[in-house]
Amino acid sequence: MPLNTSAPAQTGEYRPLIVAFCCNWCSYAGADLAGSSRLTYPADVKIIRVPCSCRVNPLFVLKAFERGADGVILCGCHPGDCHYTTGNYYTRRRMTLLFSMLDYLGIERERTRVEWVSAAEGAKFSATMNDFARTIRALGENRKLRDLRCGN
């Protein structure tokens, strides 16, 4: 029963697979607000709830790519507003370095992103996801991170 959404939908249109890690206190709530405000964004985006953006290990990001994600986005509280005071500051450094490394390895930099979305920013959440999904659709399927050795 293949339900992998990165497979083409009935229309034949390419549907990317996007994993969004959202911190429980701001961004997940922001996503909830986007929902209750009926602000749509593509179903390509699947949200994983984490207590804080600083819980996201680079391994998770790489694992997602390995398993076929086409884009990975991290959302957390705005710097300075972290529920745990400092978590997102560490996230910022970690992801800055990780993304820089991925870029260094020649992987499309647009496939990864960090956005700060507060619980009040339902509209921003939706806009961010729309934009990210558009970017990933334009990039097409992720091949490089799945297949760094042999390529095609």
Binding site: P79, G80, Y89, Y90, S100, V114
Partner: peptide, 17 residues
């Protein structure tokens, strides 16, 4: 060490890219 440290003024991940 830099990865267990921060400043509120650190650049955003996007800035690096």
């Amino acid at each position: 060490p830099p990865l267990v440290n921060y400043t509120p003024e650190d650049p955003e991940p996007s800035a690096v890219l």
